[in-house]
Nucleic acid binder design. Structure first.
Length: 578
DNA sequence: GTAGGGTTAG
């Protein structure tokens, strides 16, 4: 075949290849690539770009590497388009290291190269590194464009870097990219994700045009900030402006309904979803299940679940967690078995739900089976799963297993300590609780003081705790004393409470919480006189009861309420009532 | 007459 013929023909093949890739038929594109080579034609840079795109679409790392080899052999690797597609392919196939290697290897880079690398870093959770790349890009004199800013804003949002986001916003305005709809949506997104709804609104209002994605971002932002009602208002406004919702919009609306337990609104949304044909979407379906479950209608949740054409791990999780929350632990376990039968791989959320189910119905044997499965699937190093295992064993009465799991955990948080100490207290293992408490003191700063109140109260070993705090090396550690004071309150130990309070009211006389705790101890003991004395003392020392907020504790939970800047006049009555 | 990177989600 004459070389001229080859060149003429490859153009046609490339066009066909491009169409497959554009239509998402990556597998067909790969077959076509095979065919091109079988026909004895040499792929050119255009061919390679499309094939690499197909590999990226399939997430086919090995095939991608293989094509890369061919590219090197053909001498096309230094082409900037080919290089860009390789950087992108490696990132999309999950190998950010190869992506970075390719980036560094490229003899020349353009703005697309930088954008691809920045976005790749963001997508694999390296937001900070993406921001560094942006700096570097500017130092090298490459002008950012709208895609760059989308990537940068995503990076800021992913690491909640609000200030960096504001800087980028300024730059965006200066360079005139703020009227771009993609950039605008990303601006709304970063402000909403960082909890600054006011800024999000400002961007939103000033945008020259809004797209369904912009509206959806606003709706989701309000849901995340706990403003479900406002999210629904936005949804109505969006429809008045004739913007058609998409599947993501409905996910946001259903989240909003779930968050404010608005069953009727949820049903309305469901009707609309059916009309628009989104009910077969697995994301929408899972959100429907979740919404009905959170609104307490498990029948509806089950009905939606049965109608869905396919279930993934999140759909199953919504069902399992919904049943656990409604007190139907047995049903949750049945669902888990069904899920296993259908070959859907459980994740940490599944295991937490299933272990909670076991604990709720005291199903130790089932719990052990689940534990085995957790070990086999490698989820046992996850702290959430570990906590649930400790809790399950403790609630099922096997403190030995609870202790073994606890000791094997790579790290502990407040939930872990609560689970193990709660178990010790429940089963009267006072000495074990004390040993654990000693361990906690070594790791004190990581434990929230208020939670410790609970632990100490449950362990019921106030004197030992007092001695241990005294034995702690270094300066007296006020939070530890404060925790003990609160524990005295739980235990009604007025004598120790007074002693402890006196000690550290001198260490930190300006903290209103301590006065409140002490006066709570007196109030709980029914001594209004001493209670008033403490308030008087606080007043004399000029300590304001900050923002007029005071704390009370009911059933081991700390509640706060606003009082005047005096002690609440009905402190004792409130306590008696509670 | 062919190429590359982009917004929201359970």
């Amino acid at each position: 075949m004459a070389p001229g013929t080859v060149q003429l023909n490859i153009l046609g093949w490339n066009k066909k290849l491009r169409k497959y890739v554009k239509d998402g038929q990556a597998q067909k594109a790969m077959q076509l690539f095979q065919q091109i080579q079988q026909e004895g034609m040499s792929p050119d840079t255009f061919t390679f770009v499309q094939v690499i795109n197909a590999c990226a679409g399939l997430g086919a790392l090995e095939e991608g590497r293989h094509v890369h080899e061919q590219i090197i052999q053909s001498g096309c690797e230094s082409d900037v388009f080919v290089g860009n597609s390789l950087v992108d392919m490696y990132a999309k196939c999950g190998s950010i290291e190869d992506s970075w290697k390719m980036f560094k290897k490229m003899p020349s880079r353009d703005v697309v190269t930088w954008n691809t690398m920045i976005l790749g870093r963001v997508k694999c959770g390296q937001g900070q590194k993406a921001l560094e790349l942006f700096q570097q890009m500017q130092q090298e004199g490459v002008q950012p464009n709208s895609v760059t800013f989308v990537g940068v804003l995503n990076a800021c949002a992913s690491v909640l870097a609000l200030e960096d986001g504001r800087c980028a916003h300024k730059q965006i305005i200066e360079s005139g990219w703020d009227s771009d709809i993609f950039v605008g949506s990303s601006l709304v997104d970063i402000y909403a994700k960082c909890g600054s709804m006011e800024d999000a609104w400002n961007v939103f209002k000033n945008m020259p045009s809004r797209h369904v994605v912009t509206w959806t971002t606003m709706i989701l932002g309000h849901v995340k900030c706990g403003q479900g009602q406002k999210a629904l208002e936005l949804f109505r406004q969006m429809q008045r402006e004739n913007v058609r919702p998409n599947s993501v919009t409905f996910v946001g609306v259903l989240n909003a309904c779930a968050s404010i337990v608005a069953l009727e609104e949820g049903r309305c949304a469901h009707e609309q979803i059916i009309e628009c044909g989104w009910d077969s979407d697995v994301f929408v379906g899972s959100s429907l299940v979740d919404m009905y479950a959170k609104c307490g209608s498990m029948e509806d949740a089950q009905r939606v679940f049965n109608k869905m054409p396919s279930h993934d791990v999140v759909t199953w999780n919504s069902m399992i967690l919904g049943h656990v929350k409604c007190g139907q632990g047995q049903k949750a376990l049945e669902l888990f078995q069904q899920m296993n039968k259908e070959g859907v791989q459980p994740d940490s959320v599944t295991f937490v739900g299933v272990l909670n189910a076991c604990a709720s119905i005291v199903a130790l044997e089932e719990g052990r089976c689940v534990h085995q499965q957790i070990i086999e699937s490698g989820w046992d190093s996850n702290v959430f799963v570990g906590n649930s295992l400790v809790d399950m064993y403790a609630k099922c009465g096997s403190m030995e297993d609870a202790q073994t799991v606890f000791n094997k955990m790579p790290s502990h948080d407040v939930i872990s300590w609560n689970a193990i100490l709660g178990g010790c207290a429940m089963h009267g293992h006072g000495n074990e609780a004390l040993k654990l408490f000693e361990q906690i003191l070594h790791d004190f700063t990581k434990i929230g003081t208020l939670q410790l109140v609970d632990l100490l109260g449950r362990a019921g070993k106030l004197h030992e705790a007092e001695n241990m705090i005294k034995a702690m090396p270094g300066k007296p550690y006020v939070p530890a004393w404060r925790a003990l004071l609160a524990a005295c309150k739980i235990h009604g130990n007025v004598e120790m409470g007074e002693r402890v309070a006196k000690q550290f009211l001198e260490l930190e006389p300006e903290n209103a919480v301590d006065y409140v705790l002490l006066s709570n101890i007196y109030a709980a003991a029914g001594n209004r006189h001493l209670c008033e004395n403490v308030e008087l003392q606080r007043h004399e020392r000029g300590v304001e009861n900050q923002t007029g907020r005071t704390w009370i504790e009911v059933k081991n939970e700390v509640h706060s309420f606003i009082a005047g800047n005096q002690a609440h006049p009905q402190m004792i009555e409130i306590h008696t009532e509670l």
